[in-house]
Design a protein around this nucleic acid. Structure first.
Length: 288
DNA sequence: GGGCAGGTCTAAG
DNA sequence: CTTAGACCTGCC
């Protein structure tokens, strides 16, 4: 039985629920006490809010505080950013208010890439199942508070992956896209590391040169895996919001350039706010 | 059973 | 350069 490490971080301005359950990450589990289990790259954590503190338990002590701060983007001043966004778009206030405490997670680029390749034209529940199965097959098992969890596999572990290894994942035609991606990593082992240093439009181009990664998935990878706030994933929810609010239609490229004009600062964050807002509105007004 | 889900590829104009 | 259609799969 591994020793349990606990830390406390003074931080109150985060909404763990909306941050962890709005489709940025697919492997956060809510516990009965409203805390969350998060597979935080190389460790498992349990995180909960208690008054003005975040209470975190983990199986691994090393750099725990730093890892949590980075993952949940706690150093960024979202109040200041929100104010700047509002200055350009006062009518965005209702959205901003609903998204108070919502953070852009900084996840593992490898996990983000594969997760969002799987996510295309797929359901969130299915995406989670497939990714968990993927980790179970190829990732390291970690016992945490009496339960087994699986880390996301390392790049080295994935280099020998074959198409037929993916058959049990129920990811359908996306299996060959994963293999394309892994082949790219085999050719260029530093591919993911190098993306960090590219500007967003170059990084998008690099990612989209891989068959199976389009504009939407590439944008998700850069926003959620690299914290590049100047890319913005346009999906069905966001499209719907933009249509309802601004009557903007057209191809994704079209929508992208128009929304960039309207929200020149932190466009990626704005889009994510819209996504979260619209999903919540739909849920609220749903008769089911 | 048809439609749909945080899209992308392909082929055809 | 733009745009239908097809596409795995499970769940309603």
């Amino acid at each position: 039985m591994e020793k349990l490490h606990q830390i406390k971080i003074y931080y109150k301005d985060i909404d763990l629920y909306s941050t962890l359950t709005s489709g940025q990450c697919f492997r956060a589990f809510m516990e009965e006490d409203n805390s969350f289990i998060v597979i935080l790259i190389d460790r498992i954590i349990n995180i909960k809010q208690k008054k003005d503190y975040l209470i975190i338990e983990s199986n691994k002590e090393e750099d725990l505080k730093e890892k949590v701060i980075t993952y949940f983007d706690l150093k960024r001043d979202y109040f200041k950013i929100n104010k700047e966004i509002l200055k350009n778009n006062p009518d965005f206030k209702e959205v901003i208010d609903l998204c108070e405490g919502y953070k852009i997670l900084k996840q593992n680029p490898l996990e983000t890439s594969i997760s969002f390749i799987i996510s295309q034209n797929n359901k969130v529940s299915m995406i989670s199942k497939s990714i968990n199965e993927f980790c179970k097959l190829f990732g390291e098992k970690v016992n945490f508070k009496g339960k087994d969890y699986y880390l996301f596999p390392t790049q080295e572990k994935l280099t020998d992956l074959k198409l037929e290894d993916l058959k049990t994942l129920k990811i359908g035609y996306r299996d060959k896209y994963i293999i394309n991606f892994i082949n790219k990593l085999k050719e260029q082992p530093n591919f993911l590391k190098d993306l960090k240093h590219l500007n967003s439009s170059c990084a998008l181009k690099e990612l989209m040169s891989i068959k199976g990664i389009g504009l939407k998935v590439a944008s998700c990878i850069l926003l959620f895996g690299y914290g590049k706030f100047d890319v913005f994933p346009i999906d069905t929810w966001v499209k719907q919001y933009i249509y309802n609010k601004y009557k903007i239609v057209g191809t994704n490229n079209n929508i992208c350039s128009k929304i960039k004009e309207k929200f020149p600062l932190y466009t990626g964050l704005c889009i994510q706010y819209m996504f979260h807002y619209n999903r919540n509105k739909i849920k609220e007004t749903s008769i089911y």
